[in-house]
Nucleic acid binder design. Structure first.
Lengths: 229, 229
DNA sequence: CGCAATATTGATATCGATCAATGAAAGTGG
DNA sequence: CCACTTTCATTGATCGATATCAATATTGCG
């Protein structure tokens, strides 16, 4: 139905174990093939046959659904360590696009199902991933259904901060555009901008550049995210 | 933290197989204990240890999350055949309350995990349930993030219609209150009422009583739910 | 350098929330 | 079964948060 952008994938003959290092667990990490996608590439598209699932090794991915008239809802931003495309039914329920150049480990669906049947640890990892995704989706429902614009933006920043692998939690990397953030939060670009400006004027954050937020007052940010009863 | 209403559970010594009938599959349906809850009873509460999961045999259940200041988001209405409380992490992530008198089959978490490890069919059923819940949550995200009030209400009616076990699809049973619907759709009671009135004035539905909607023009309802691009 | 995409800020419009009043149904206790 | 109370639902009037429309500013890229 929709024209699909060209995939720019460089599938290497490198086994994923090479990335996992010598002390890796006997887990999923070393049983797929490494794949790279350029920034803006489509990894899979809503409606595609769900032949592959992926684990993100590096980079960031946008998972979204589109309505027939073009309205878009971003369900999730997948970062390093996250699984995507695991919630197959017959076809992928959403579109995955690379926000930055990304490195993934690709697993065929059949392989993953077999591994899950045979190995208790892997099975537990798959269950755990699905449960975590469900937990995240349910929190997202509360955000979209019941939180104000300022709360949504503050929550988003805290979520990005929490998920950041950096030990330095005073700056938050924001690889996505304002449009992506807006579509994640159920707002418009302009409202996202205004709320960021507001947080800045409140002395809670600084915005050194578009893709970086500096936290100046964490308690203030937390308060903006969920004012107590 | 919150005072929890008294549970009114009548756990019978009846094995679930008695409900499943003689031709039941060797599936989950016959491996738990039957439990009843009265209308308005709390089945489990957000934060409770996730010791049990349940399959709904009869009745309807509201699954919701509450913010500290009382704002509520309903994530799901569970109807006959649905699983609830499967997405444990350590504790239940939401509160389950009976909308009507309900009959459930209760499974201990440990039992369910063991069954899932031992039996491929049950394992597949558990995976399938989690994937379905995730699919539903993602559709719900689009609804909350990007749809208008009229679209939300129309979608809700179509969802209830789709899930209805009745062969007669001209009337839709709506066991929940307007407040429940509003909290599911991220709206206020008043807006839900107004949109129902609007659909009625459009000749799309009738409202014979609070808990019943008659569909007079299905195509019209579908159009209200998602106007084409 | 210059163009296109992205971000910010301002002015105004709109949808849905809030406030308010009434009506209808469902409990509850006599 | 009825009177009384409470909860739930509907409708109207008004308000306000966020969307929309519009104008610039900034960034990134060929």
């Amino acid at each position: 139905m929709t024209i699909q952008p060209l995939h720019v994938a460089h599938k290497n003959a490198v086994n994923a174990a090479m990335l996992a290092g010598p002390n890796a667990n006997p887990s999923l990490a070393n049983m797929g093939s490494v794949t790279n996608f350029d920034r803006n590439a489509t990894i899979f598209h809503e409606g595609d046959a769900a032949d592959y699932s992926y684990k993100v090794v590096a980079g960031a991915i946008r998972l979204s659904k589109m309505m027939s008239d073009g309205r878009r809802q971003v369900a999730e931003f997948a970062l390093s360590g996250d699984f995507i495309g695991l919630n197959w039914l017959d076809e992928h329920a959403m579109t995955a696009e690379a926000l930055t150049d990304v490195t993934l480990i690709a697993y065929t669906r059949g392989r993953l199902e077999r591994l899950g049947d045979e190995n208790q640890a892997i099975r537990a990892e798959l269950f755990s991933t699905l449960r975590h995704d469900l937990w995240a989706a349910h929190n997202h429902l509360v955000l979209l259904g019941r939180q104000s614009a300022l709360e949504r933006v503050a929550c988003f920043l805290l979520e990005m901060r929490r998920r950041s692998p950096n030990t330095d939690k005073t700056t938050i990397a924001v690889p996505m555009t304002r449009r992506d953030i807006a579509d994640y939060l159920g707002l418009t670009i302009e409202t996202v901008c205004r709320m960021l400006t507001r947080l800045k004027q409140m002395g809670v954050i600084d915005i050194p550049d578009r893709h970086t937020i500096a936290v100046r007052n964490l308690a203030g940010l937390r308060h903006a995210a969920e004012p107590e009863a």
